[in-house]
Simulated scan of single mutants.
Amino acid sequence: MKSAVIVFPGSNRDNDVRLALADATGRDPTMVWHRDATLPEVDLIVVPGGFSYGDYLRCGAIAAHSPVLREVAERARRGVAVLGICNGFQILTEAGLLPGVLLRNANLKFVCREVGLRVETSQSLFTAGYATGQVLRIPVAHHDGNYFADDDTLDRLEERGQIAFRYCNADGVFGSEANPNGSARNIAGVFNETKTVLGLMPHPENAVDGLLGSTDGRGLFAGMVEALS
Protein backbone atom coordinates (compact mmCIF):
# COMPACT_ATOMS: atom_id res chain seq x y z
CA MET A 1 0.00 0.00 0.00
CA LYS A 2 1.35 3.40 -1.00
CA SER A 3 0.41 6.42 1.09
CA ALA A 4 1.02 10.15 1.35
CA VAL A 5 0.82 12.49 4.33
CA ILE A 6 0.02 16.18 3.75
CA VAL A 7 2.13 18.58 5.82
CA PHE A 8 1.01 22.10 6.72
CA PRO A 9 2.74 24.83 8.70
CA GLY A 10 1.54 23.93 12.19
CA SER A 11 1.13 20.18 11.62
CA ASN A 12 2.34 18.32 14.71
CA ARG A 13 1.16 14.74 14.18
CA ASP A 14 2.53 14.28 10.66
CA ASN A 15 5.57 12.37 11.87
CA ASP A 16 3.43 10.28 14.23
CA VAL A 17 1.28 9.21 11.29
CA ARG A 18 4.39 8.56 9.21
CA LEU A 19 5.73 6.19 11.86
CA ALA A 20 2.38 4.41 12.25
CA LEU A 21 2.06 3.93 8.48
CA ALA A 22 5.66 2.78 8.13
CA ASP A 23 5.12 0.24 10.89
CA ALA A 24 1.91 -1.06 9.29
CA THR A 25 3.10 -1.12 5.68
CA GLY A 26 6.85 -1.61 5.92
CA ARG A 27 7.46 1.50 3.84
CA ASP A 28 7.55 5.22 4.56
CA PRO A 29 4.71 7.33 3.19
CA THR A 30 5.50 10.26 0.92
CA MET A 31 5.44 13.52 2.86
CA VAL A 32 3.78 16.21 0.70
CA TRP A 33 4.12 19.93 1.46
CA HIS A 34 0.78 21.74 1.32
CA ARG A 35 1.90 24.15 -1.40
CA ASP A 36 2.62 21.33 -3.83
CA ALA A 37 -0.05 21.17 -6.50
CA THR A 38 0.45 17.49 -7.33
CA LEU A 39 0.40 14.21 -5.48
CA PRO A 40 2.10 10.91 -6.28
CA GLU A 41 -0.09 7.96 -7.21
CA VAL A 42 -1.05 6.51 -3.84
CA ASP A 43 -3.75 4.34 -2.28
CA LEU A 44 -4.22 6.48 0.81
CA ILE A 45 -3.90 10.19 1.62
CA VAL A 46 -3.69 11.29 5.25
CA VAL A 47 -4.37 14.82 6.46
CA PRO A 48 -2.79 14.80 9.95
CA GLY A 49 -3.46 16.59 13.20
CA GLY A 50 -1.94 19.79 14.48
CA PHE A 51 -2.70 23.46 14.25
CA SER A 52 -2.47 24.32 10.56
CA TYR A 53 -1.82 28.04 10.13
CA GLY A 54 -1.99 28.40 13.92
CA ASP A 55 -5.77 27.81 13.82
CA TYR A 56 -6.19 31.42 12.72
CA LEU A 57 -9.55 32.45 11.26
CA ARG A 58 -11.17 29.07 11.98
CA CYS A 59 -9.63 25.65 12.49
CA GLY A 60 -8.83 24.17 9.09
CA ALA A 61 -10.38 27.04 7.10
CA ILE A 62 -7.13 28.37 5.63
CA ALA A 63 -5.61 24.93 5.07
CA ALA A 64 -8.72 23.87 3.15
CA HIS A 65 -7.68 26.32 0.41
CA SER A 66 -4.07 25.14 0.12
CA PRO A 67 -3.07 24.14 -3.43
CA VAL A 68 -2.70 20.45 -2.55
CA LEU A 69 -6.28 20.26 -1.22
CA ARG A 70 -7.62 20.71 -4.73
CA GLU A 71 -5.75 17.57 -5.73
CA VAL A 72 -6.85 15.76 -2.55
CA ALA A 73 -10.48 16.60 -3.41
CA GLU A 74 -10.01 15.34 -6.96
CA ARG A 75 -8.46 12.09 -5.75
CA ALA A 76 -11.31 11.66 -3.27
CA ARG A 77 -13.82 12.10 -6.10
CA ARG A 78 -11.97 9.32 -7.95
CA GLY A 79 -12.35 7.03 -4.93
CA VAL A 80 -8.88 7.29 -3.42
CA ALA A 81 -9.04 6.75 0.35
CA VAL A 82 -8.58 9.92 2.43
CA LEU A 83 -8.14 9.96 6.20
CA GLY A 84 -8.32 13.17 8.25
CA ILE A 85 -7.29 13.06 11.91
CA CYS A 86 -8.13 15.88 14.36
CA ASN A 87 -7.09 19.05 12.50
CA GLY A 88 -7.27 16.91 9.37
CA PHE A 89 -10.93 16.21 10.15
CA GLN A 90 -11.51 19.95 10.54
CA ILE A 91 -9.79 20.58 7.19
CA LEU A 92 -11.89 17.95 5.40
CA THR A 93 -15.14 19.47 6.68
CA GLU A 94 -13.99 22.96 5.70
CA ALA A 95 -13.11 21.63 2.24
CA GLY A 96 -16.57 20.10 1.85
CA LEU A 97 -15.29 16.52 1.71
CA LEU A 98 -17.20 15.57 4.86
CA PRO A 99 -20.51 16.83 6.29
CA GLY A 100 -20.79 18.91 9.45
CA VAL A 101 -18.42 21.25 11.26
CA LEU A 102 -16.14 21.12 14.29
CA LEU A 103 -16.94 23.78 16.90
CA ARG A 104 -15.16 24.76 20.10
CA ASN A 105 -15.42 22.21 22.87
CA ALA A 106 -18.53 22.68 24.98
CA ASN A 107 -16.47 23.53 28.06
CA LEU A 108 -14.31 25.97 26.01
CA LYS A 109 -11.18 24.18 27.22
CA PHE A 110 -8.46 22.20 25.46
CA VAL A 111 -8.92 18.49 26.22
CA CYS A 112 -5.98 16.07 26.14
CA ARG A 113 -6.65 12.60 27.51
CA GLU A 114 -7.57 9.06 26.61
CA VAL A 115 -11.23 8.47 25.77
CA GLY A 116 -13.50 5.52 25.11
CA LEU A 117 -14.40 5.09 21.46
CA ARG A 118 -17.02 2.69 20.09
CA VAL A 119 -16.72 1.33 16.57
CA GLU A 120 -20.09 1.90 14.93
CA THR A 121 -19.41 -0.23 11.85
CA SER A 122 -16.70 -2.56 10.64
CA GLN A 123 -18.00 -2.25 7.08
CA SER A 124 -15.42 0.15 5.71
CA LEU A 125 -11.82 0.04 4.58
CA PHE A 126 -10.88 2.13 7.64
CA THR A 127 -12.67 0.06 10.28
CA ALA A 128 -12.35 -3.45 8.83
CA GLY A 129 -9.72 -4.24 11.46
CA TYR A 130 -12.30 -3.89 14.23
CA ALA A 131 -15.60 -5.50 15.19
CA THR A 132 -18.79 -3.48 15.20
CA GLY A 133 -19.44 -2.40 18.77
CA GLN A 134 -15.81 -2.83 19.84
CA VAL A 135 -14.69 -0.33 22.46
CA LEU A 136 -11.27 1.27 21.98
CA ARG A 137 -9.06 3.47 24.15
CA ILE A 138 -7.67 6.31 22.01
CA PRO A 139 -6.26 9.70 23.04
CA VAL A 140 -7.73 13.04 22.03
CA ALA A 141 -5.99 16.43 21.96
CA HIS A 142 -8.12 19.32 20.71
CA HIS A 143 -9.88 22.57 21.52
CA ASP A 144 -12.35 22.49 18.61
CA GLY A 145 -13.63 18.94 18.44
CA ASN A 146 -17.33 19.52 19.05
CA TYR A 147 -18.96 17.88 16.00
CA PHE A 148 -22.10 19.64 14.85
CA ALA A 149 -24.59 19.20 12.03
CA ASP A 150 -28.29 19.97 11.71
CA ASP A 151 -30.76 17.29 12.71
CA ASP A 152 -31.59 16.34 9.10
CA THR A 153 -27.92 15.78 8.34
CA LEU A 154 -27.41 13.79 11.55
CA ASP A 155 -30.42 11.62 10.69
CA ARG A 156 -29.02 10.94 7.21
CA LEU A 157 -25.65 9.99 8.69
CA GLU A 158 -27.41 7.54 10.98
CA GLU A 159 -29.56 6.07 8.21
CA ARG A 160 -26.66 5.65 5.76
CA GLY A 161 -24.23 4.19 8.26
CA GLN A 162 -21.85 7.14 7.96
CA ILE A 163 -21.05 7.40 11.66
CA ALA A 164 -17.73 5.65 12.17
CA PHE A 165 -17.03 6.17 15.88
CA ARG A 166 -18.79 7.53 18.96
CA TYR A 167 -17.43 8.54 22.34
CA CYS A 168 -18.46 6.08 25.04
CA ASN A 169 -17.57 4.76 28.47
CA ALA A 170 -15.66 1.52 29.09
CA ASP A 171 -18.87 -0.47 28.66
CA GLY A 172 -19.67 1.10 25.30
CA VAL A 173 -22.48 3.25 26.70
CA PHE A 174 -23.00 6.78 25.39
CA GLY A 175 -23.67 9.76 27.61
CA SER A 176 -22.52 13.27 28.39
CA GLU A 177 -19.97 12.02 30.92
CA ALA A 178 -18.21 10.08 28.16
CA ASN A 179 -18.34 12.96 25.66
CA PRO A 180 -15.14 15.05 25.94
CA ASN A 181 -16.27 17.96 23.77
CA GLY A 182 -20.07 18.07 23.49
CA SER A 183 -20.26 16.49 20.03
CA ALA A 184 -23.78 15.90 18.72
CA ARG A 185 -24.90 12.33 19.41
CA ASN A 186 -21.41 11.56 20.81
CA ILE A 187 -20.03 11.47 17.27
CA ALA A 188 -16.24 11.14 17.10
CA GLY A 189 -15.81 10.29 13.41
CA VAL A 190 -17.80 10.25 10.17
CA PHE A 191 -17.51 8.90 6.63
CA ASN A 192 -18.49 10.38 3.31
CA GLU A 193 -21.34 8.63 1.50
CA THR A 194 -19.06 6.05 -0.14
CA LYS A 195 -17.03 5.46 3.03
CA THR A 196 -13.80 6.25 1.19
CA VAL A 197 -13.19 9.41 3.25
CA LEU A 198 -13.02 9.30 7.04
CA GLY A 199 -12.55 12.10 9.53
CA LEU A 200 -12.13 11.55 13.26
CA MET A 201 -10.99 13.67 16.19
CA PRO A 202 -9.15 11.02 18.29
CA HIS A 203 -5.56 10.11 17.40
CA PRO A 204 -5.17 6.41 16.47
CA GLU A 205 -1.57 7.12 15.43
CA ASN A 206 -0.83 7.80 19.08
CA ALA A 207 -2.23 4.43 20.14
CA VAL A 208 -0.02 2.00 18.25
CA ASP A 209 2.72 1.46 20.83
CA GLY A 210 2.16 -0.02 24.28
CA LEU A 211 4.64 2.48 25.70
CA LEU A 212 2.06 5.17 24.97
CA GLY A 213 -0.64 3.37 26.96
CA SER A 214 -2.75 1.75 24.24
CA THR A 215 -2.33 -0.20 21.02
CA ASP A 216 -6.00 0.08 20.02
CA GLY A 217 -5.11 2.31 17.07
CA ARG A 218 -3.27 -0.53 15.36
CA GLY A 219 -6.50 -2.02 14.05
CA LEU A 220 -7.23 1.04 11.96
CA PHE A 221 -3.85 0.95 10.21
CA ALA A 222 -3.82 -2.85 9.83
CA GLY A 223 -7.34 -2.81 8.40
CA MET A 224 -6.45 -0.12 5.86
CA VAL A 225 -3.35 -2.02 4.75
CA GLU A 226 -5.35 -5.20 4.21
CA ALA A 227 -8.13 -3.38 2.38
CA LEU A 228 -5.87 -1.31 0.12
CA SER A 229 -3.04 -3.74 -0.63
Rank of each mutant, 00 (worst) to 15 (best):
Ala131Thr: 08
Arg13Lys: 15
Ala73Cys: 04
His143Leu: 12
Pro180Ile: 06
Gln162Ile: 10
Gly60Val: 01
Phe110Glu: 11
Pro202His: 01
Ala131Arg: 12
Ala149Val: 08
Leu69Pro: 01
Leu200Glu: 02
Thr121Asp: 04
Leu92Thr: 01
Cys168Glu: 06
Cys86Asp: 07
Ala64Thr: 05
Arg160Asn: 13
Val7Cys: 15
Glu94Asn: 04
Asp43Asn: 12
Ser183Phe: 00
Ala24Ile: 06
Ala149Asp: 13
Gly84Asp: 04
Leu198Phe: 04
Gln123Leu: 09
Ala184Pro: 13
Thr38Tyr: 15
Ala73Tyr: 07
Phe221His: 05
Asp151Arg: 03
Asp152Cys: 08
Ala164Thr: 09
Gly84Tyr: 02
Phe8Glu: 01
Ala76Asn: 00
Pro99His: 04
Val82Tyr: 00
Arg160Tyr: 13
Gly199Ile: 03
Pro9Cys: 10
Val190Glu: 11
Ala20Trp: 02
Glu177Met: 15
Leu103Ser: 14
Val135Asp: 00
Asn146Gln: 06
Pro202Leu: 00
Phe8Leu: 04
Lys2Arg: 12
Pro67Ala: 10
Gln162Pro: 02
Gly175Glu: 05
Met224Gly: 02
Glu120Lys: 08
Phe165Met: 08
Ser122Leu: 05
Gly84Arg: 01
Thr196Asn: 07
Gly213His: 08
Asp216Asn: 04
Met224Leu: 07
Ala63Tyr: 00
Gly210His: 13
Ala227Val: 04
Ala64Lys: 08
Gln90Asp: 04
Leu200Ile: 03
Cys86Ile: 05
Trp33Gly: 14
Val173Leu: 15
Phe148Arg: 15
Leu228His: 10
Asn179Gly: 05
His143Ser: 13
Ile187Thr: 07
Gln134Glu: 06
Ile45Lys: 02
Thr127Lys: 01
Arg77Gly: 06
Leu39Phe: 09
